[in-house]
Design a protein around this nucleic acid. Structure first.
Length: 645
RNA sequence: GCCGACGUAGCUCAGUGGUAGAGCAACUGAUUCGUAAUCAGUAGGUCGUCAGUUCAAUCCUGACCGUCGGCACCA
């Protein structure tokens, strides 16, 4: 006698168990047509599911956000059927719904190529048009394994074997085609609709392990209707337009070339951007009580052996040798061992702690070739690195200070929001459990004090300690990990750092490894994409374009440009032989934030016509006024005299 | 590193077994013009590198390098 509560609070009573389909029909024909699945006491299930107890039921229709996941999951099944129909002998593995779409991993001797897409998509549309119902069945484990083994589906058989013993094994059949699946699904393949598209193929290791066979993965995207699909495709185009690699080239910021894979050639304009960010960071660190240092690039292997890098990190290190000397040097992949060397010079007192040692540390890491990505993932990069040597009691207050500094810096760069992930002890780690208890406890306490909410990333900590990771969200919703704070009890031990305490005895300091931007290369790449090249004035590599209308204004324009440069602004003087329309177009495409237009009138009146990027209005200003205003506006956000636009 | 795709002028891209084109950019000239493209002309390429097949290779084959999309990696 189930009593079913609906979202509007009404209750329907039935004499016998009832399916979602029947319940929907009982409520009304409109709902019966629209319902795709239902939430039974909060759990998403098939409409065919029997309701045999008192329950709350919410029907899912195409309008609900949950529909997306159902559509994508069903689309994955349709894809798999299409592929197996067209390419007999292909084995199926897994095919989940993912953000924006779905994929399915297949095993086939010959991998798929995008040229196969038209045929597969056509077959998928056939299957959707056929509208075969998804039929769920519960299968006994042995039968399920036998079913797939009979078909030569050894991956599926392996999956079933590895399912927990108490797991109910279910199949979903659509017409002639059956897959192992936990569900739920919509009513029929027709519910997938037509707003899907196959996107790309990729290799993917079976069960995500690189020792396993490589499968052929087909990615697709699927939406509730054509409009959503179009919007998604349009978003992808927009994302491509703000790709830092394209903008970096178009704005003449940097380039990469074959001879130096993973290393950036910064051009003058890009380097100006870099220096602006670096100067800003240096001022912030100075003000926050850090002392900046500089340590060697090439360091003897003995130090890396002592630090543990030689053992744990060697495959990522560039090794250098010379002919005349029998020694092995390595380009530093991290700065911490070098900072400990500075700490170890002389006898340190507890009075010096916390000692905040910062370096814009140029590091090299041999990243796998497949990991390289523009300037975001490189082999040579510069970290805004620092190590805070402190006592255990200082971990919490230092964390609080750090998070405040980080939040303020992210805000200044235009990222008001960030997320925090707490990565705790990994399986392979140095230090005993008591040390880890202390380190994690201290970091947790520090987060509480700082009011930092975090999600836990289990087992993802560094081998020497737990860490916080600070993740930025950019203008188009992508996440980027930048900042980090790592608590380290191990490195001071290994490299024998110590200080004399209040009690006159020697103690080990704790090291906090921390970075805010992460690496300049990566952070600047993120900034480029965040702003799509249209930087705020203080960051813009060219801040003002001075463009003449007629050559009679050239001399005055040179004077204006000189005055702006004297005020510290980056100026492009354009007295070229082109129309003002062409000049404005050129500088607008180059994302120069301010264009000063100078004709005879301005030259005579000693004024400028100021035009903002993307705007149509212009503002007439006296020369002195304009220079003062732009200089104030272009000041970095931490500087006094900064003025808003 | 693994799977796949790709590599032709600075950029975007055509193209062919008989050693290459377009648009934009660049350069030169004319034009001096008031807010997102003035006109005309000129120059520019070992067709990623190295082998192989062929009378002949940018094109076909192989290896390598690099890039792109994923996977794995991101200590």
């Amino acid at each position: 006698m189930p009593a079913i509560t609906l979202p509007d609070g009404s209750v329907r009573r039935f004499d016998a168990p009832v399916t979602g389909t029947a319940l929907a029909a009982a409520i009304g024909p409109g709902l019966a047509r629209a319902a795709l699945a239902m939430k039974l006491d909060g759990r998403l299930v098939d409409l065919a599911c029997q309701i045999d107890h008192d329950a709350r039921v919410v029907f899912i229709t195409r309008r609900d956000p949950e529909a997306l996941e159902l559509i994508r999951h069903d689309a994955a099944h349709v894809l798999a059927e299409a592929v197996q129909t067209l390419y007999p002998g292909t084995q199926v593995t897994i095919g989940p719904a993912i953000e924006n779409g779905f994929y399915y991993d297949f095993h086939r001797n010959e991998p798929f190529t995008p040229e196969d897409f038209p045929a597969i998509e056509a077959k998928m549309r056939e299957i959707v048009a056929r509208g075969a119902p998804f039929v769920r069945s519960v299968v006994e484990r042995g039968d399920a394994i036998a079913f797939f083994e009979r078909r030569g589906e050894r991956f599926k058989a392996e999956l079933i074997r590895d399912l927990p013993a108490d797991q109910t094994i279910t199949f979903y059949r659509q017409g002639e085609w059956t897959d192992l699946c936990r569900g739920p699904h919509m009513r029929t393949t027709a519910d997938v609709g037509s707003a899907f598209r196959l996107m790309k193929v990729a290799g993917a290791y079976w069960r995500g392990d690189h020792r396993n066979p490589m499968l052929s993965r087909i990615y697709g995207t699927a939406w509730r209707d054509q409009k959503e699909l179009d919007a998604y495709l349009h978003m992808l185009e927009e994302a491509e337009k703000r790709d830092h690699r394209r903008i970096g080239r178009d704005m003449d910021l940097f380039h990469l070339q074959e001879e130096a894979p993973g290393s950036v050639f910064w051009h003058a304009k890009g380097w100006r951007l870099y220096r602006t960010a670096e100067s800003y960071m240096r001022r912030r660190l100075d003000a926050a009580g850090y002392q900046e240092v500089r340590t060697p690039q090439l360091v003897d292997r003995s130090l890396w052996e002592a630090s543990g890098h030689w053992e744990k990190f060697r495959e990522h290190m560039f090794i250098a040798t010379v002919e005349d000397e029998d020694r092995v040097l390595a380009l530093k992949p991290m700065n911490c061992p070098c900072h400990v060397q500075i700490f170890r010079q002389g006898v340190r007192s507890y009075r010096e702690l916390p000692l905040r040692m910062a370096e814009f540390g140029a590091c090299h890491r041999y990243e796998p070739s497949g990991a390289l990505h523009g300037i975001m993932r490189v082999r040579a990069f510069t970290q805004d690195d620092a190590h805070i040597f402190c006592t255990e009691a200082q971990i919490a207050p230092e964390t609080v200070r750090f998070v405040e500094l980080l939040a303020s810096i992210y805000r200044d760069f235009g990222f008001p929001e960030f997320r925090v992930k707490f990565s705790d002890r990994p399986a392979l780690r140095a230090g005993d459990d008591a040390v880890w208890d202390r380190a994690e406890g201290a970091l947790r306490e520090a987060c509480a004090t700082a009011g930092v909410a975090y999600e836990v990333n289990p087992g993802e900590g560094a081998f020497y300690g737990p860490k916080l990771e600070f993740v930025l969200r950019d203008a188009i919703g992508r996440d980027w990990q930048c900042g980090t704070l790592q608590v380290d009890f191990v490195m001071p031990e290994r490299l024998d750092a110590e200080y004399v305490g209040e009690d006159g005895a020697r103690h080990r300091p704790v090291m906090l490894h921390r970075a805010i931007l992460g690496s300049f290369e990566r952070f600047l790449g993120i900034l480029i994409e965040q702003y799509a090249g249209r930087f705020p004035l203080w960051l813009a590599p060219v801040q003002v374009a001075v463009a003449t209308i007629v050559s009679d204004a050239d001399a005055y324009a040179a004077e204006v440009a000189a005055a702006l440069r004297a005020a510290g602004l980056a100026v492009a003087l354009d007295t070229g032989n082109a129309t003002i329309k062409a000049k404005i177009r050129e500088h607008s495409l180059a994302h120069v934030p301010v264009i000063l237009v100078l004709g005879r009138r301005e030259a005579e009146a000693r004024t400028v016509a100021l035009r903002r990027l993307g705007g149509e209005a212009q503002e007439m200003l006296g020369l002195g006024d304009a220079v003062a205003r732009l200089a104030a506006e272009a000041a970095a956000p931490d500087l006094p005299g900064r003025a808003a636009a």
